[in-house]
């Protein structure tokens, strides 16, 4: 395993944060006279973070294979949650089978092959045109456009957008050879820290709700505090990136903003479909999409900004 030295430093830092968070949560829990739902949820969230950090670390130690396989599995879990809630009828069976067992694996195979020209259009062009054909052949036109559109949307978010995280490994940045896995770590750490810090600031001083109908837990105080804090941390992580501190701050601001709006968009879909969480598999957090919405929205933008301004290929 030839991971860059910076990776070890980063993981030690993340572990330190987790230890501190765990201690604080346990102290809060011990101080509470009775069971408190917020604290119980906090403990569950932190416990789940230990698992998620372990999984991500393991994947990144595995290099490109590890990251591609991990995100293919996350796409699978996310798409499963998304398509559970979308409009579908018996006639869509083949379209759904193709989405899971052809389109998803092919997209990640293209990522693995570093075939930029194909992986960046495969779902927006080929799947986009193929799926409505497969659905139309079965002749059931009830809610046809809704079914086609919702399925395509699920593929765009859960597979296409998500696959831009491992796609970072295919970028060729002069002077940064062999270190691309750090870009994955940078993206995930900054965006997820932004989510966590928005939660913390919101719980501490959050008063004014941003979008009460979309998400009761998102406040202006949490949003501003979390995004600024996470961007500052992102700037402080410049040493593991090909960016200057100022560039790292700017990119961090972009991805934390995209992350925030990703959470908002996915909340709007949940309200539309009448559910509170996307799933139940990550204790304290909900489903995979509940945890990944921000990363998924920021990954393609992060990828393309780096590709335009830093990469040679």
């Amino acid at each position: 395993m030839n991971t860059p030295a910076e990776f070890t430093t980063l993981i030690l830092g993340v572990l330190a944060i987790l230890v501190v968070a765990t201690v604080i949560a346990q102290v809060l829990k011990a101080r509470m006279a009775r069971d408190n739902d917020v604290i119980d949820n906090l403990v569950a969230r932190i416990n789940a973070w230990w698992g998620m950090v372990a999984l991500l670390t393991l994947a990144m130690l595995g290099g490109q294979a590890g990251v591609v396989i991990l995100f293919a599995l996350l796409s699978f879990a996310g798409l499963r949650e998304f398509l559970t809630l979308t409009a579908k009828r018996r006639a869509d069976h083949w379209a759904l089978v193709v989405s899971f067992f052809v389109i998803l694996p092919v997209q990640y195979a293209l990522i693995w092959a570093d075939w930029y020209g194909m992986f960046s259009i495969f779902i927006p062009v080929y799947a986009f045109l193929l799926l409505p054909i497969v659905i139309a052949i079965h002749g059931d036109t009830d809610g046809y456009l809704t079914r086609v559109a919702e399925t395509q949307w699920g593929l765009m978010i859960c597979v296409f957008a998500a696959s831009h995280v491992p796609a970072l490994l295919s970028l060729e940045i002069p002077g940064y050879e062999g270190k691309n896995v750090l870009l994955v770590a940078f993206l995930v750490v900054v965006v997820q820290l932004s989510d966590v810090l928005q939660y913390v600031w919101g719980k501490l001083i959050g008063r004014r709700k941003i979008a009460p109908r979309l998400s009761p837990s998102k406040t202006w105080e949490g949003f501003v505090g979390g995004v600024l804090n996470a961007s500052a941390i992102g700037a402080g992580l410049w040493w593991m990136t090909p960016f200057t501190p100022l560039e790292a701050a700017g990119l961090s601001l972009v991805i934390t903003l995209m992350g925030f709006f990703g959470g908002l968009v996915m909340s709007a879909i949940k309200r539309d479909k009448g559910v509170k969480d996307w799933g139940h598999l990550i204790a304290g957090h909900g489903g995979f999409i509940d945890r990944l919405d921000s990363v998924v929205f920021s990954a393609p933008i992060f990828f393309h900004l780096i590709r335009y301004f830093w990469s040679v290929a």
Binding site: L79, R80, E81, L83, T84, K88, H93, V97
Partner: peptide, 17 residues
């Protein structure tokens, strides 16, 4: 939701919660 996963007469299941 299992009927959407595997409707009568279909062999390959669609992964859904």
């Amino acid at each position: 939701n299992l009927t959407s996963v595997m409707p009568k007469g279909k062999v390959i299941p669609v992964p859904l919660l």
